[in-house]
């Protein structure tokens, strides 16, 4: 079985320590809640192929460490990310307050057109909530972010968050707002798209050639 897909999006999961970034990713990839988890050291990685609007998209997700001391080593992974999940813990105001900081990092380091979806995690802990839906939603609006509340424990909205982000990137590609061929866009053609492009080899993007090289090994 060869892994074929139309696009490859580079995603980031960022946010303060303990907001549940790795759990969100684990839930998204493994479909179950990771009960025993430690703070992430450096970065971890996960990938999954999803179907978005009839296109299969491989999401290549970098799960970064939230602790401050890792900030420097995780920055190199921001580069060229097409999408990001900006995670805060809705039971922790501190993690919410840090959002602006994280957002600044993402905006300066990642692809300029990066699609960011703000995720309020731990929705299952309703009674410990410190950040209301309304205020987070307002924050998102002011900063032109998409917004969702999710729970890595129950899995609620986890898949939706990733899909929503991927969907809006795809929409931008279709409207021409995003050019996958531009270097550092965080988007690559998959081999499925490449086959379609084969008729006109001159248009074949360099990034895509590399990507084909990799995907053929899978």
């Amino acid at each position: 079985m060869s892994e074929s897909y139309d696009f490859l999006f580079k995603f980031l999961v960022i946010g303060s320590a303990g907001t549940g970034k790795s759990c969100l990713l684990h839930q998204f990839i493994e479909g179950k809640f990771k009960a025993e988890s430690n703070h992430t050291i450096g970065v971890e990685f996960g990938s999954r192929i999803v179907n978005v609007g009839g296109k299969s998209v491989k999401l290549q997700i970098w799960d970064t460490a939230g602790q401050e001391r890792f900030r420097s080593v995780t920055r190199s992974y921001y580069r060229g990310a097409a999408g990001a999940l900006l995670v805060y813990d809705l039971t922790s105001r501190d993690s919410y307050n840090a959002l602006a900081n994280w957002l600044g990092d993402a905006r300066t380091l990642a692809s300029p057109n990066i699609m960011i979806l703000c995720v309020g995690n731990k929705r299952d802990l309703e009674e410990e909530r410190q950040v209301t839906f309304m205020e987070a939603s307002r924050f998102a609006q002011e900063n032109e972010l998409m917004f969702m509340e999710a729970s890595a424990l129950t899995g609620e909205n986890v898949e939706e968050a990733f899909l929503k982000c991927a969907k809006s990137i795809l929409a931008k590609i279709e409207t021409g707002e995003l050019d996958p061929e531009r270097l550092g866009s965080g988007i690559q053609y998959g081999d499925a798209t490449l086959r379609r492009l084969k008729g006109n080899p001159s248009q074949r993007p360099k990034a895509a050639t590399e990507c084909m090289g990799t995907s053929c090994h899978i």
């Binding site: 990685f45 970098w62 890792f70 420097s72 080593v73 090994h217 899978i218």
Partner: peptide, 20 residues
């Protein structure tokens, strides 16, 4: 194969900074 693939990706994204 998938791991090597991942490793390749890690290497290309590596900032070569010591992880604290």
């Amino acid at each position: 194969r998938a791991r090597m693939e991942e490793l390749h990706m890690f290497l290309e994204n590596e900032g070569w900074e010591a992880c604290p």
